[in-house]
Amino acid sequence: MLNRHPFKAISAMSISIHIHKTHREHTDGAEIVEAQGETIGACLNDMVARFPGMAGKLFTASGQLIRTIEIYHNMKSAYPNELARATQDGDEIHITVMLAGG
């Protein structure tokens, strides 16, 4: 059957980003933010466009991921080259923060 709305399917693509608790003050308290993008980096940028306060929590001034941020893609570490990893509809991204307390 002919898909009359091929681009609609793409625009409906949704990736769930699980926000670390320490970052939720920047997402209006949301634990999960739905985002769109074909890479993890694009998804994060889509989120940052709506929640600008997340930018400084995730990225350095030069746009690189801050070293203490851990990104898990579908429950698996996305390190290294996290931002370039391709995403698909329904994927889950978890953002966590490295902890050093003892």
Binding site: I66, R67, T68, E70, S77, Y79, P80, V97, M98, L99, A100, G101
Partner: peptide, 14 residues
């Protein structure tokens, strides 16, 4: 394998 090196001082609160 997961973290290249220690983060900058002050990047994460203690």
């Amino acid at each position: 394998c997961v973290f290249e090196k220690p983060p900058p001082r002050g990047a994460v609160p203690n």
